[in-house]
Nucleic acid binder design. Structure first.
Lengths: 343, 343
DNA sequence: CTGAAAGCGCTAACAT
DNA sequence: ATGTTAGCGCTTTCAG
């Protein structure tokens, strides 16, 4: 920085133009009346010298940073590796970019907890992507009335945070409706990590749909596990080796489903002839797996978009109704991994 | 912001403690001698009031922002959707986080060209992820001696920019060695977009390896195209329908390869019995496609790490040898999409 | 229409 | 060991 071309300041321009700083400021910001003559003259000097306002100085005065922070749990490397979250990020990045708001990525860690981002006035608002339930920093946020929004619910019931999230319950019901219409009656669920609200909601939807159809819930068919293909593979095989195997396996995400399909195929089961498998998210990979995966689609990009747009409006005070909470529809995409029940 | 708890400043602390601003500053920054007594007293007030230094003000004085910008071509949505680039981003984000440097994502667009980021002193350095050759803003960077680095080469031959990139030539040679040892003699190349240096290097490696093996280069076997599965599917089929089809198809990335495999399978060709297919990048999807894809692995995470680490050192003046240029090794991962040539 | 002065919160000399 | 002063580059009253 120190080495690069010396910064041009308002004062430089003012001196050369023989006017006051304020007049230059007026033409830069297109604010206040300036005679057409001086405006043109000053604009020329600005162009010649390649003047750009120093945003840092501006921010200091305005008390705003024009930046939004995206907080990601450091431990959650998988966010960057997971196509679903990448789509959310893209939605956020593109939306903010349209408003000329900067996006600051912050991997939460001990040294530098995310609360510093706003105490230090580095950001005007925060988007949270993967924060554990009961994060100790969370209460401060609402107390301080700091603009912030989550791309996932952090509690099952009422709480004052703002969030956008998908309709997991309905998604699960759609999946089960589909399987039911294919005569499946014994359906297992490889749900995902138990400590995620979204996983609990999937389970809730699963139970609700079964109950509505008069199918008793068999807890031994519900498994909690990582969102990983390995876990999917192992548990799918375990299920099929049990005395009374299911005819269909619902999965909490597509990675689990793909692992399950692969494991089953290798062990000699045919998908979907012997077992049907349904994924969740509908990531790109779903289309390309063999057979193409039936999956419940979440609109990840939209989720990011809405989070960013809402936060923007909170920052600019367009809306104030805390808590803003929105549920996005999910939709079953039927492909080749589901078929009529073999039994 | 305006609504949130009023900011606590150095002056507030100083007033309460009955000392000067500078003394408070000393204890905050752990710099200069302060009597143990006053230090403790001041620290208490700091803790009680929840004081945090205003980074913006600090940055204004220091002329540094503690932030690095990551510039992404706006048109290149596919960067966010492409698992390969996401890994690069993760490498960057984690490395900067370790140094407590902020990462600012910037989607380049007309309204706000990336050059503003440094003219406005918003960032201390820039990482470029996907910038077209001949970008008009590029020359300014080197002229101004602004710390910056690319995660890809932007010119085939000598130029003064800093970059980290993979060894595409060697990767291609490994792929061809492998195919050659399986008796393939007629190998096509679905290269990728012609305007990318990395694609040109792949072609170069392809030609070099063939030539070294005494196989004449047949230009009609080289295709340029998008990095997309659809393009892969279409061109693979076109190749196989030609009078003298290849026995193997090399692909510029895994998406092309996966599209090719899928298209071929649907048209009744067996991979690898009838045709071998090799991808490039070795994204996660490669392992999960059917058959598992043989692919040339690039270490995306490492690429991001090195870019970030190097930029950090440039910013802190640890290194000055411009241009820093590093080539990362690639490695062929052999899986099930390659086999002995049918002819 | 234009300008002077004050101050955003902090750091860096240079006192004391 | 502590305080004073002068900015960083900009915006914002308030005056001309």
């Amino acid at each position: 920085m120190q080495d690069s071309k010396q910064m041009v300041t308002l004062k430089n321009i003012a001196d050369i133009a023989g006017v006051s700083i304020k007049t230059v400021s007026r033409v830069v910001n297109n604010d206040g009346e300036v005679s057409e003559d001086t405006r043109r003259r000053i604009q020329r000097i600005i162009d010649d010298l390649g003047y750009y306002p120093n945003t840092i100085a501006r921010n200091l005065v305005n008390g705003r940073s024009n930046t939004v922070g995206l907080v990601i749990q450091h431990s959650a490397n998988y966010i960057f590796s997971h196509p679903f979250f990448n789509e959310v990020m893209r939605g956020i990045a593109e939306t903010l970019s349209e408003h000329n708001i900067n996006l600051l990525i912050h991997l939460a860690n001990k040294d530098m907890p995310y609360s510093h981002l706003y105490y230090q006035r580095l950001v005007d608002g925060l988007i949270f992507m993967s924060i554990p339930v009961n994060d100790p920093n969370l209460p401060e946020l609402s107390e301080n009335n700091f603009p912030s929004i989550f791309t996932c619910r952090i509690a099952e019931e009422n709480n004052p945070t703002c969030w956008v999230d998908s309709d997991f319950i309905d998604g699960m019901e759609q999946a089960i409706d589909h399987l039911y219409s294919l005569n499946h009656r014994r359906m297992a669920l490889l749900a995902g990590p138990e400590n995620l609200i979204s996983v609990r909601l999937r389970v809730k939807g699963y139970k609700k749909a079964l109950t509505e159809k008069g199918i008793p819930v068999d807890e031994s068919l519900i498994y909690y596990m990582d969102f990983s293909s390995d876990a999917g593979r192992n548990l799918a095989l375990q299920l099929m080796k049990s005395p009374n195997p299911p005819t269909a396996i619902l999965c909490g995400d597509d990675m689990i489903a793909i692992g399950a399909v692969q494991g089953l195929s290798e062990a000699g089961w045919q998908v979907p002839q012997d077992v049907s498998v349904i994924g969740f998210d509908d990531i790109e990979l779903a289309r390309f797996s063999t057979p193409p995966l039936t999956s419940v689609r979440q609109d990840a990009f939209l989720k990011g978009q809405i989070a960013a747009k809402t936060l923007y409006r909170m920052i600019t005070k367009e809306i104030d109704e805390k808590p803003f909470q929105q549920i996005l529809p999910t939709r079953l995409i039927i492909r080749g991994s589901t078929a009529v029940s073999p039994r």
